[in-house]
Computed example of a mutant assay.
Amino acid sequence: MNIGRAIKLCRNQKGFTKTKLAENSGLSVSYLTLLEQGKRDPNLSTLEKICLALQIPSTVLMFLAADADEKAGMSTELSEKLSALALSAIGGNDE
């Protein structure tokens, strides 16, 4: 599972800078950087703050964070389509 990659994907899809995500989530830019680089593992309350700030369901973030071996039994094609659909659904900045 690569939570940092998923956070970065969702942040970029929403058009948020790290500064904007930090402001919206109450986390520091340096901590978000460490998360995105995979140097820190967030706890559940931190993930909830990030998901609320990005206005995305935590299940979407977790799906996007899952590695191929964690999607065992799901075809690569289906996984890619679901990932693309999820990113499309969270879309750009709604503000």
Rank of each mutant, 00 (worst) to 15 (best):
K39R: 08
K39G: 06
R40Q: 11
R40I: 06
R40C: 09
R40G: 04
R40A: 12
R40L: 10
D41N: 11
P42D: 08
P42I: 02
P42F: 00
P42M: 03
N43E: 10
N43S: 10
N43H: 12
N43W: 09
N43R: 12
N43F: 11
N43I: 12
L44F: 01
L44M: 02
L44G: 02
L44D: 00
S45C: 03
S45H: 04
S45G: 07
T46A: 04
T46W: 01
T46C: 05
T46E: 00
L47R: 02
L47Q: 00
E48G: 05
E48K: 00
E48P: 01
E48L: 06
K49F: 03
K49E: 03
K49V: 12
K49D: 02
K49A: 08
I50D: 00
C51K: 00
C51Y: 05
C51V: 06
C51R: 05
C51E: 04
L52F: 08
L52H: 06
L52V: 10
A53R: 14
A53E: 14
A53Y: 13
A53L: 09
L54M: 15
L54E: 12
L54R: 13
Q55M: 12
Q55V: 15
Q55C: 13
Q55A: 14
I56S: 04
P57Y: 03
S58G: 05
S58C: 04
S58M: 03
S58L: 06
T59E: 08
V60Y: 06
V60F: 10
V60L: 06
V60T: 13
L61V: 03
L61Q: 02
M62C: 02
M62L: 09
M62T: 05
F63C: 07
F63T: 15
F63N: 08
L64N: 04
L64T: 08
A65G: 01
A65P: 01
A65I: 01
A66R: 08
A66M: 07
D67W: 07
D67P: 01
D67E: 07
A68N: 13
A68F: 00
D69L: 11
D69M: 11
D69H: 15
E70C: 00
K71Q: 15
K71Y: 07
K71V: 13
K71D: 09
A72V: 01
A72P: 04
G73P: 03
G73K: 08
G73Q: 01
M74V: 15
M74W: 12
M74A: 12
S75A: 08
T76F: 15
T76W: 14
T76L: 11
T76S: 09
T76Q: 10
E77L: 03
E77F: 01
E77Q: 07
L78D: 14
L78Y: 13
S79G: 12
S79L: 07
S79V: 09
E80G: 03
K81S: 14
K81V: 15
K81C: 11
K81R: 15
L82D: 09
L82I: 12
L82W: 15
L82Q: 13
L82V: 11
S83H: 10
